[in-house]
Nucleic acid binder design. Structure first.
Lengths: 149, 149
DNA sequence: ATGAAATATGAATAATTATACGACCGGTCT
DNA sequence: AGACCGGTCGTATAATTATTCATATTTCAT
């Protein structure tokens, strides 16, 4: 699923200076994402990454300066497309996602700043959402249901 | 001189969505700057313009988000390289520049926000700088001299 | 289940951008 | 004057990126 890969791309470009899509593709391949430059090109377009040239003259891909509006749409889309099911247990919500996408979904939720959500914990295809109070669980679940509807 | 051209480039990309360097080169040629894509590529690198993709999916060159530090260096450089002479008359300073560069120098000065400078008026190779008080003229001139030294 | 539509992707290639190289000033030094 | 240097730029081309086309896979409505 491409969201897990795109998540990885963001991770990579945040930690090192990448100046070509081919290099990005190579790193992804080493990390287990079997992918070509063509796909990386598409991912970069979708993530709206930009190629800047730093003062050192070194060019590299970075996040866009204004990432609010576009990305919040993006998060909603990620949740919509990766969440398989949502269940509650006490003050916890167990979210099942597509394989490898729990992390991406977790980041999307974290970044969306739900006040009732204390934190999230992501496995491979399971995301644990910790809610502050048992009473708020249904409210948060309703929000999720609404998104994935 | 390339600063006049780069100034034009900024003007163009601010007023319309340009998605390739070739198109930019064509517009420049129509405007009288006889130039090839190669040169535009170099200008774009120097201006640190970035190619973003707008929400409409249309990609285009734009100014970098953070343009403070790099551009102030740039302005200083423009002044240093384009100013030919500086003379005063009452509360006015007459700056001679390389042909076609008065505008670029004027913008550089305007953007630098000297408190004593009321405004500037640019011809082709002459820039008139209007200083608030006659007494401040020598101070501003000293600043210019320092830059072009 | 079954076929139609949507999605994702790779291979090949088209389109775009960056650069190596050489030419051409304009200024400077001897 | 002549040699030299630094900067600018075009041509040709290398390098990079985007897209077209074909497939495979999934989704979804019958």
């Amino acid at each position: 699923m491409r969201y897990a890969r795109q998540n990885k791309i963001l991770e990579i470009i945040k930690s090192q200076e990448i100046d070509t899509q081919e290099k990005l593709a190579e790193i992804l391949r080493k990390t287990g994402f079997q992918v070509t430059q063509a796909t990386v090109s598409r991912d970069i377009k979708e993530l709206q990454l930009i190629k800047t040239t730093s003062e050192s003259g070194q060019s590299c891909y970075t996040l866009p300066a204004k990432m609010e509006a576009p990305l919040s749409d993006r998060f909603r889309k990620i949740l919509k497309e990766t969440i398989q099911s949502v269940d509650a247990a006490e003050n916890l919500i167990v979210v099942k996602t597509l394989s490898g996408c729990a992390n991406a979904a977790g980041e999307a939720i974290d970044t969306s700043d739900y006040p009732q959500i204390v934190g999230t914990l992501a496995g491979d295809n399971t995301l644990l959402v910790i809610v502050d109070k048992k009473e708020n669980v249904s409210q948060v679940m309703a929000a999720f249901e609404e998104i994935i509807a």
